[in-house]
Nucleic acid binder design. Sequence first.
DNA 1: CGTCCAAGTTGATGCAAGTCAAAGGACCAC
DNA 2: GTGGTCCTTTGACTTGCATCAACTTGGACG
Lengths: 251, 251
Amino acid sequence: MAQAIRFRQASSPLKASCHQCSLSNLCLPLAIPDNDLDRLEDIVQQGRIYNRGEHIFDQSTPFRSCFAVKSGSIKTSIISEGGEEQVTGFFMPGELVGLDSMSGESYASTAKALERTSVCEFPINKLEELTGKLPELQHHMYQLMGQEIQNSHQLAMLLSKNTAEERIASLLLSLSSRFQRRRMSGTNFSLPMARNDIANFLGLAVETVSRVFTRFQNQGIIRARGREVELLDVEALQLVTREFSRQGFQQ
Amino acid sequence: MAQAIRFRQASSPLKASCHQCSLSNLCLPLAIPDNDLDRLEDIVQQGRIYNRGEHIFDQSTPFRSCFAVKSGSIKTSIISEGGEEQVTGFFMPGELVGLDSMSGESYASTAKALERTSVCEFPINKLEELTGKLPELQHHMYQLMGQEIQNSHQLAMLLSKNTAEERIASLLLSLSSRFQRRRMSGTNFSLPMARNDIANFLGLAVETVSRVFTRFQNQGIIRARGREVELLDVEALQLVTREFSRQGFQQ
DNA sequence: CGTCCAAGTTGATGCAAGTCAAAGGACCAC
DNA sequence: GTGGTCCTTTGACTTGCATCAACTTGGACG
């Protein structure tokens, strides 16, 4: 057992190759000129593989690293003193997890693999050091964090202003476009998360999520069997998300 | 008119003195060793004074600068295509506004003075350049942005899980502790924002906010006349915010 | 000092979504 | 196979808060 741990520690700082990674146009390398890419590779560690349900980190873990999803997907959530969970995001390959934790000693949230998932690990002290030397990378980090704030603000807007149907339509469209950016079908995909996670993320009850799914299905907007989803009428979905705003104007 | 504008531009890069600023223990200087403080002063611009209701920036303004509140207070909000507003934050002296905009060409939100307010302006290109040279400052920026993400996640949790009473109690306690950190009374203060802003921020109707205020007042927890608020029983307020979480455990 | 308009309060009513309950699936272990 | 567990769906009922409407307060201003 002690040996196993030792072995893990010793083998953990395995160098990852950003040069060969297919995600280099989505992930951090995107911000770095080719000739500096080695310097990022020098600090990246090949993370291990997590099975569905395994924690990458939780709120009691000391904050050491940010993680880029390599394959699979991750959900992050915060858990209140009382044990209440709020899902704060879903992360797909190429996306960076842990940015919200940059302000403290421990992680600010909990990250859990939604399926078999592999990650790359960026030790934060080394990453900060590097961003101090590569202005483009620093700029990119600011951009990513700014984007993260915006996402969260959008979520707040969704939660406080929109109906169940609007929230779910928004999520489906968001997932769709993110799948598409990863060269996967934007109309035919498999949800990485359970209904429960969707419900929690969107501030709804599971039953409500389920009902809206069947309602959309009956309207011929989507087709859903379990986690398999097919968007049959994207425009209709977009219309649902905007319906609310429209009311402000006409009529 | 043209002259006035010229005059403004010429006089605008007025140097602010961080050395003498009373907020140096809250604001950016907090992260900088004394002997480097000059370098921050070199890039800060003394911003102008805004009257209640004036915009510091909005979503159509090209993103150039972050602003530190010097006196007064600011609310930020995002406005959807349909014109729906979601208040995303209230900012007090020493706090930095505009971090959510670090990812785009234009500001991601709109900032409005809630009262007569003065600010310091940090041009973003110069700030980035400086954080590249001062690791402590870079670290602090990451911390601030991480904190901003966390705040927003907390808001999402509040919006999706908590009752009207819990939301308002949370806001009052948050304001209280922030006033206190600024050496003002934490139990006797004047709300900088209107009921409307509170309602919007917390995802409630104005009427609900009003009702909860009077309910708290009848219970002897607070005393409120207009914007003047007195917290009579802070523990009771804390209890309200935790009531919800408790239910998860006992009984 | 009265006028006016925005901001705040209070009451009555309706509805979207939560809660409770129970019945299917799907998947896994044995 | 068969039993168990977890996830999802569906139905019946309940409720917190929004909405609508009317009234009050307060501050700005001529």
